[in-house]
């Protein structure tokens, strides 16, 4: 038992503490867009709706090219055996009162309606966002713009669209112009409010003291915070413009007989609601399918693009 352990200075060695070890972040690297897609695809309904949106978009942009549908082609107008055919294999949606194939007609109409809605949304969002940014940032712009907003938002939208459609004559581009010419201001107002909320946050002051210009602050500090807000606004606008086009064509302001549109189909077929219900129900169903699927996809994407939903 003589093996006594002696503790003296030699038993100790200096150990250098590495501070940097405590600084390491072990969590996996965060990537904004990766998290957006991960959150988006975690919702089953969103995936189903996305498939529907893709199918609808493909159908409405490819099918009219294959079918070569022409709304003015009424070759069967004197052939009553082709009128009012119920849905069958040859005519999945049946035929209408002058013997046109309703399936071809609906997809050609969907193309027109979607094109109008998407173009109007793009124009509205781009102009609205740019104007809204500077509107929210500058007090001088605010004084002028708030008056413009008050005037425009107090004129009924339908009235503006009707006057423009009448003066510029009916047509796709005229309708796009009519739809987007005043509606950008509500997007701009919406963005203005959002900008005002985050404009005076401390990190923007910090950017100022680092010498960043207003443009740089807008694009790097404000815009990234508004992605989810913008996606929400877009996902609301597309279905809104589709239903508006339908509504306008339905009251007879929108497009002429030359092009097919969902609104026109619903309008002209409404009178056969009882005698040949498929002629009215099927186009309405397709319209609803487009609106709902786009809206749900947009809303899920908006939620997914908000980083607060990434931490779960």
């Amino acid at each position: 038992m003589s093996e006594e352990k002696l503790i003296n200075e030699d038993s100790f060695t200096f150990y250098k503490v590495d501070d940097s070890v405590s600084e390491v972040i072990s969590a996996p690297e965060y990537s904004y867009w990766k998290s957006v897609f991960k959150t988006f695809f975690s919702s089953k309904i969103a995936i189903i709706m996305l498939i529907i949106v893709a199918a609808v978009l493909l159908m409405s942009f490819i099918h009219p090219m294959i079918s070569g549908y022409d709304n003015q082609d009424m070759s069967n107008i004197n052939n009553p055996s082709e009128w009012f055919l119920r849905p069958s294999l040859k005519h999945p949606f049946g035929t209408d009162d002058v013997g046109r194939d309703l399936f071809d007609m609906v997809w050609a109409g969907a193309r027109t309606s979607l094109f109008i809605a998407i173009m109007a949304t793009v124009i509205t969002t781009v102009i609205g966002t740019i104007v809204g940014m500077f509107w929210g940032f500058s007090k001088k712009v605010d004084i002028v713009m708030i008056e413009v907003y008050n005037i425009i938002s107090n004129i009924p939208f339908t009235l503006i669209v009707m006057i423009i459609s009448f003066t510029l004559k009916a047509g796709i581009w005229q309708l796009i112009f009519a739809l987007s010419c005043t509606s950008w201001i509500s997007t701009a107002y919406f963005i203005r409010v959002q900008v005002m909320i985050i404009r005076d946050r401390e990190y923007n002051l910090a950017s100022r003291t680092l010498g960043s210009s207003t443009t740089k602050i807008i694009f790097h500090n404000i815009l990234p915070y508004l992605i989810s807000v913008l996606v929400t606004s877009i996902s609301r606008d597309v279905p809104h413009f589709i239903s508006y086009e339908v509504f306008l064509s339905f009251i007879g302001v929108g497009l002429t007989e030359r092009v097919a549109s969902l609104g026109r189909i619903v309008q002209t077929n409404a009178k056969y609601m009882q005698s040949a219900p498929y002629m009215f129900v099927l186009p309405v169903f397709v319209t609803a399918l487009i609106s709902i699927s786009l809206y749900i996809v947009g809303q899920t994407l908006a939620d997914a693009s908000d980083p607060r939903n990434h931490m779960i």
Partner: peptide, 23 residues
């Protein structure tokens, strides 16, 4: 003013609010 901005810098109070969360 550019020169002044560079010469005089600031350290902010709240580190949670003074960094751009999306950068």
């Amino acid at each position: 003013s550019k020169e002044m901005t560079r010469n005089i810098q600031m350290i902010f109070q709240d580190p949670a609010a003074s960094l751009n969360e999306r950068a």
